[in-house]
Write a protein that binds this DNA or RNA. Structure first.
Lengths: 211, 211, 211, 211
DNA sequence: TATGAATGAGCCTTCATTCAT
DNA sequence: GATGAATGAAGGCTCATTCAT
C-alpha cells in the first residue's frame, strides 16, 4: 500500500523529509520524465543504492512524494471549521488554499503536473484523491447552508460545488505556478498580488451565485 | 518568427498535417520530455533526417505544433458573434470551448501541459498567448452588457472576466484531459456527459453572479 | 588524375576559386573530419547537388583543394632564382616561405593538418609532394655553392638540406598556425613579429653550419 | 584541475592504463573529431556508461590523455643531466627525444595533431605546455656552455635555442609520424633508419652554428 | 546541369536500475 | 544497510551521399 519500502521507515525523519523536499523540488521544476532519480540522490546527499533501498523505482519515489503531499493537504482541509456562516467558511477555505500553496509551492506545482495526460497512468496508482474529499466537504457545507436558509433553496448543489472548486483550484495554482500567476495577472493586474483581499472579493462574487 | 524551417513550407499540406497530428498526439500523451522526436518521425513515416530538415530541434517542433493550435483557437474565438444578449454570448463561448476541445483533444491537452512549470521556459518563447485574446474579449463583452443594462452597474468587470474564464477553462479541459474529466465526474456524476446541457446550466449559475 | 570531375572545369574560374577559398578555410579551421561538405556548399552559395557534380566525394574535394595549393607552392619555388651567392638564395627562400604562408595562411594550415596521421591515407592519394621538389632544389643549390667554394668541401649535403628545410618549414608554419606562432614566441618573444628580420638572422646562424 | 573524474582514480592502474592506451591510439590514428568515444569504450572492453563515469566528455578524455603524455615527457626531460660538455648534453637530448617517440609513438603523434588549428581550442585548456619547459632548459644549457667558453661569446641564445628545438622536434616526429618519417627519408634516404647515428651527425652540424 | 529534399548510420551523452563490496 | 561502479538502451542531432525534378 505505501509507495516506499520498509527501509525508508527506519531512517530518521529528518532524512526522510530532506529526501522528500529535494524530490518535490526536482519533480515540480522539471517534470517527472526530465527528473533524474540519480540527481535527486546526489542532491539529497545519499547514494543511489540507498535510494533504491527506500523505493523500488523512480515511479514509486514520485508517488510516495505526491502521496505525502496529499496527506498534508487533507490535514489542512480537515482543520477547517465546519460551522458558522457560509461566507466565512468559504473564505476560510480560499485562504487555506492560498496558505497551502504559498507554504508548499513545489508540492502544489506537482499537483498541477499530475493533471497532465503524461502522468495519468501514475495518478491511477494513487488511492487518495483530493477530489473525493473536497466533493464531500463542499456538498455538506452547501447543504447545511441551504438548510440554514443562508443559500437559496433551489441551489444546484453539485454544480455549485464544482463552481466553487474551480475557483479555489485556480486561485491556489496562481500561488505557485508561473503560468497561472501570469494568467491571473492578465485578468487582474496588480490585484493579483494581495491574495487575501482577492479571496475576499471572490467570495463576494461567488456568493451572489449561490444566495 | 515561425518555428519551422522553410523546407517545411514546401512539402504538401497533407504531409504537414500528418506530421503535426502525430506530433501533437505524442507530445500530448507523453509530455514534452518523454516524447522522442525519432519516434514521431518513425510514426509519421519520415526519416529523422527529414524531421530535422523541417525543424531545427525538438523544441522548435513542439513550439510549431503549439503555435498552430493557438492559431486554430484564435480563429474559433474570432468566429464568435460579438452582439446579442449576454447570456447567449456566454453560452456560445462555452459551447465553442467544448467544441474545440472535443474536436482537438490532443491539442487541448497540450495546452494543459504548457501550464506546467516544466514547460514555462518553452512557453516564454511563444508570442501568441491565448490569455491576451480572451481578457480583451471578455472585458468588452461584459462592459457592453453593463452598458446595455443587462448586468448590474457595479460589476467588478476584471474579476468577473476571471471568474468566467476559470469556468470556461476547466470545462474545456474536462473535454479532453483524463484528470479533468474524472474531476468533473466526481462533482457532477452522470451530468458530466452532456457538455451542452452542462454549459447551459453553468451559464445560469454564472449569470447570477453578474446580473 | 585530377580530383575534380569534368563539370568543375566548365564553371567560371571565379566560382571555382570561390568554392576553393571557402573549402580551404573550413578544412583548415576545423580539420577534415569536423568539416561538413554541406556547409561548404551552403557557405559557397551552391547546392550540395552541384558540389557532388563537381567532386565525387568529400575526400576528393579535400584533395582537389590541397592539390591546388601545392601547385601554388610549386610556382613560388620555381620563381626563385637559382644563382647568385648562396646566402642570398637562402634568404630569398626563407622570405618566399614567409610570403606564401602570410598570403595563404589557411592553405598553409592545411599542409600542417596533412602531416597528421589522421590524413596519412589521404596524403597517399596525392601525387605531388612538396618534399620531392624541395629536396632536389636544396641539394642542387648546396652542391653548386660547394662547387663555387662558398660552402665547405666536406659538407654533408643531404643533412644540410634537411636542416635547412626543418627551419624553413617551422618558420613558414609560424606564419599561419596558432600553435607554431605561439611556440616561436616562447623562444623569441617580440622578435617573432618581424619575420623578415628573423629570416635574416636565421640565415646567419644556418650559414655557420654550412660554411 | 584534472581532466578525469574521481571515479577514474579509484579503478585499477591496469585498467586506467588500458583505457589510456586505447584512447591514445584511437585519437592519434584518426584525429580528435573522427574518433568515437563509444568505440574507445568498446575496444577497451568497458561500457560507455563507465567511460562517462570516468570522464565528463569526449573532450575531457582527450585532454586527460594528452596531459598524461605531457607528464611523461616532462619526466624524460627532467631526467637529463644538466652538466658536462655541451655536445654531450645535446646528444643526450636528441636521443631522449628519439627514445620517447619510439617508446610512445601514438602519444607523439597526438602532439602532432595538437599543433593543428582544429585543436587549438582544446590546447588552450591545457595548463602544461612542453614549450615552457624546453625554452628554459635550452637557454640555461646554452648560457652555461657560453660561460664555460664552449660556445662562442656572441651567440644569439634565444635563436640558438629555437634552432635546436626545431631540429629536435622534427627528429622526434620522424620517429612516429608517417609523414615526417617519409619526409626525412626523402632527404636522407637510408640514413633515416639509424636514428642514433643521425642524432650524432645532427649534433655535429648544429654544433658548428654555435661554436 | 542544377537543385535540395530525403535518408539513416552513427555520434555524444543521459539515466534507471543492478549488484558486488 | 549503505555504497557507488557498471551497464546499455535510447535520445537528440549531424552529415555524406543519392536521386527525382
Amino acid at each position: 500500500m505505501p509507495f516506499h519500502k520498509d527501509t525508508f521507515d527506519r531512517i530518521s525523519e529528518d532524512k526522510r523529509d530532506h529526501i522528500f523536499t529535494i524530490a518535490v523540488s526536482e519533480f515540480a521544476g522539471k517534470g517527472y520524465a526530465a527528473t533524474s532519480i540519480n540527481q535527486i540522490a546526489r542532491k539529497a546527499g545519499i547514494s543511489i543504492g540507498s535510494m533504491y533501498s527506500y523505493f523500488d523505482s523512480k515511479e514509486d519515489l514520485f508517488l510516495a512524494v505526491v502521496d505525502k503531499g496529499y496527506e498534508l493537504l487533507e490535514r489542512v482541509f480537515q482543520g477547517l471549521r465546519q460551522e458558522g456562516p457560509f461566507r466565512e467558511q468559504l473564505l476560510e477555505l480560499l485562504n487555506a488554499a492560498v496558505w497551502y500553496a504559498q507554504r508548499h509551492p513545489d508540492m502544489n506545482n506537482l499537483y498541477l503536473s499530475m493533471m497532465t495526460e503524461e502522468l495519468a497512468p501514475l495518478a491511477m496508482r494513487l488511492s487518495t484523491q483530493a477530489e473525493k474529499l473536497s466533493v464531500d466537504y463542499y456538498q455538506r457545507m452547501l447543504r447545511q447552508a441551504v438548510e440554514r436558509g443562508e443559500l437559496r433553496q433551489d441551489l444546484d448543489i453539485p454544480l455549485a460545488a464544482y463552481l466553487i472548486d474551480n475557483n479555489v483550484l485556480l486561485l491556489q495554482l496562481a500561488c505557485s505556478s508561473g503560468y497561472h500567476q501570469y494568467r491571473m495577472q492578465h485578468f487582474l493586474a496588480g490585484r493579483a498580488e494581495d491574495k487575501q483581499k482577492l479571496a475576499d472579493q471572490l467570495c463576494d462574487i461567488i456568493m451572489r451565485s449561490l444566495a
